[in-house]
Amino acid sequence: MDIFLQLIVSGFLVGGIYALIALGFVLIYKATNIINFATGEFMMIGAYIFYSLSVYLKLSPFIGIPLVIVAAALLGALVERLILRHMLGQPNISIIMVTIGLSSILLGIAEIIWGSSFRSFPALFPRKAIIIGEIVLRSNLFYGFVTAMVVVVVFLLVFKYAKVGVAMRATANDQIAAFSMGINVKSMFTISWAFGAIAASLGGIIIGNIGGVQPTLGHIGLKIFPIVILGGLDSIMGAVIGGLLVGILENLAGGYLDPYFHGGVKDLAPFVVLIIILLIKPYGLFGTKEIERL
């Protein structure tokens, strides 16, 4: 029983961090309808930049993190301006592939700059493990979760109240109406790419702080798909709920089934659930079926 609880709680914490990364995906999808396969690579690049700032330049996290935010925003905006802007109106397959191509470029660049070996972060949080009853939680995981949730809440508030957030929501709702209300739709696209990259790279710093960073860190980005199928492609709250569910699900599957399969079930289980959901509900758990017109 205590193993079960332990798995659930730590899965929940990991899930909170996934939620932040999924947010990086949802922010872009919501505003631009683009499936960003490079979200994981944005995350990895963010982690590496933070690593370089704190290890090579010995900057404190309080300077390092704002610098990562600036760098991520620039990267996101640049990608939108240079690449995605040319893809407006192209078929789905082309847009998906362009982001896959982008992920390959980012992966290659990261490996050229930082090499393929594994790097661990200097400690960000107190090292003492958190103990609640019989459950023992790694401090990095616990504080990482708290940080991720704070960031998610900040994003939610920005979306709800700040002018730019309202404009982004308007654009997501109806591009033409937003345009006619004087919102610069194209710059909203750029801003949402910047926001998406920021969310992903902050997630990257947290993940890197838990398990270190290497170029293949971006593979965690694949987990976004079960998350958004569970939570809905365009809902921020959905990303949070989906993230938490996937975190718990993979932890339970890993904890109970991995011994029988020599590993691997942990990463697979969310995708099995994803397939089952899509078989029953082709537009995801919370997705809406569009009324098609002729």
Binding site: G101, L102, S103, S104, I105, L106, L107, G108, I109, A110, E111, I112, S116, P215
Partner: peptide
């Protein structure tokens, strides 16, 4: 990594 970049 070079192949990755060129591929992308």
């Amino acid at each position: 990594p070079f192949q990755q970049v060129i591929f992308g």
